Simulated assay, not measured.
Amino acid sequence: MFLRQLTYLVALDRFRHFSRAADHCGVSQPALSAAIRQLEHELGVTVVLRNRRVFGFTAEGERVLAWARQTIAALDGLRQEAHFARDIAGGSLSIGAMPPAILVLPLLMESLRAAIPALHLSVNVAASADILHDLAEHRIQMGLIYLDQVPPDGSFETRYLYAEQLVLAAAPGVSLPNRTTCGWQEAAGLPLCLLGRSMRSRQIVDACFREAGCEPTVFLETNALELLHAELRAGRLATILPVAALPSGHEAAAPLQIRRLSPCPAPGVGLVRLRQPVVTALMARSWEVAGGLVLDDALKL
């Protein structure tokens, strides 16, 4: 069994198409197909379901695929370890972050680059469940999510960064209560744009409205923060977002009105990584630096 066969298998899972997987791997489709068949012959099991209408993996193939990902991830870690030993300023790190933590990403990247100047970063914004899945599949090395979303089975390690604070925000033209704090009953009467219901942040907001015994007036639901920010800038709708998900100062045409919401939960947000028996020097250093961020004061109003 050769490493290239495992690489082809992982590419096939990613693209779900023989030709595109072959192009990604820089080989011909017949060569990739032959390598997969050779792998099946060596293992004595059928890995890929070959059907004109349906493409997928057998149950045995899914288990082989999981081992292939682990093997490739381990080899990548070995290569990075060797590279890190030669040049402590380099390496590659993939991070997944949930949308409500978007403001934290520049702070996190700045800290990592300050400690590892030539670090190459790959950042993907996704839901917490997708981030945990990508960590388990070795597609990313670090996540930024709600800590209460992490399974308690010991598969992951976590580092607390800050307690999230939800606030009511609107452009100057929207009429808000003339005080620094707003109740959920008052917020429910405003025209709102909110994150989609699949987002944990939105689920927390909905729970607060239910606890207050009121139904919000929602005109727009979306998982795209850019759309919510556009509505805020246009002055048409108000929103409820974590402080870390508010538009930065230069994005708004005029300073936003901000009201603290009371009562309001403060879920913990932090870093998560897959628990592994061996951690590369690059990952150890990145985890140390990222976990050293002090963000509670910066993300609280």
Rank of each mutant, 00 (worst) to 15 (best):
L295E: 04
T280W: 06
D87K: 03
E251T: 08
A68H: 03
M98G: 11
A290R: 06
I258V: 09
S286D: 07
G90R: 07
R275M: 08
D206N: 09
L195A: 14
F18S: 13
L107A: 13
D206Y: 03
G56E: 07
L93N: 01
E211L: 15
E164C: 04
A171G: 10
S248N: 07
Q276S: 13
M199L: 13
G77S: 10
S111P: 04
D153Q: 11
I145E: 06
R63F: 08
L166T: 02
A73F: 01
N51S: 14
A212E: 14
S262E: 15
A115H: 07
W67C: 11
Q70V: 00
E186S: 03
G143I: 06
L237S: 08
R259L: 02
L75N: 04
D130N: 09
V48F: 07
L147W: 06
R16V: 08
T46F: 05
P216N: 14
P106G: 13
N51V: 03
A101L: 05
A266S: 15
H138Y: 15
I95H: 05
L194C: 11
A85W: 07
A21W: 05
E60I: 02
V150T: 11
V243W: 06
R273L: 12
A284I: 06
P247E: 00
L32N: 07
G77V: 00
L168W: 04
S28C: 02
I88D: 11
A22N: 05
Q203D: 03
Y146P: 08
F84K: 00
N51K: 12
E60K: 11
P191L: 02
T7E: 14
R16Y: 02
H138Q: 13
P255A: 03
A127D: 15
M98E: 14
K300Y: 13
L78F: 05
I36D: 11
A252W: 00
E186N: 01
P152I: 10
L49A: 14
G292H: 04
P30R: 05
L176I: 03
G44T: 02
R63Y: 09
A254W: 08
A66S: 12
D23R: 09
L9G: 08
P172F: 00
H83R: 12
L261N: 00
H133K: 13
E215G: 07
E40Y: 05
S155Q: 13
L232N: 09
F55I: 13
P277W: 08
V278M: 14
E81H: 01
L237E: 02
F57V: 05
H229N: 00
G270R: 04
E157L: 10
